[in-house]
């Protein structure tokens, strides 16, 4: 599935991101699954508790990490495709 710059992305239903003090890392909890996201993914997933577009994400991360926005946009898009395929992130239905 491809993601357009203005698609609104959000954590999928039933997916929760939290910090785990026992393992000392973030964990992503989903039905019958536990994922251990890397710090970069965490920075993005934290923002996806509320819907965001790819452009929002790229802009926010570019300023946070002081990096070129276009490069970040590409990396984020690739990660989003992966997370959408894993049903961890979903594209909000625009009709709603």
């Amino acid at each position: 599935m491809s993601v357009a710059a203005e698609d609104r992305l959000v954590l999928a239903r039933g997916v929760r991101l939290r910090f785990d003090p026992v393992r000392n890392c973030h964990v992503l909890l989903a039905p019958e699954r536990v994922l251990f996201p890397c710090p970069t993914s965490v920075a993005i997933l934290e923002r996806l508790r509320e819907p965001r577009t790819l452009s929002d994400l790229a802009r926010e991360l570019a300023s946070e990490f002081d990096a070129p926005e276009e490069e970040i946009a590409q990396d984020v898009a690739a990660l989003m495709r992966d997370l959408i395929a894993q049903h961890v992130v979903r594209v909000e239905r625009r009709a709603q």
Partner: peptide, 16 residues
């Protein structure tokens, strides 16, 4: 991103 405990038998339990 990796699924699940990385090192057998040294990680805490995941599910109850």
């Amino acid at each position: 991103m990796s699924t699940f405990a990385r090192d057998p038998w040294t990680e805490p339990p995941i599910g109850l």
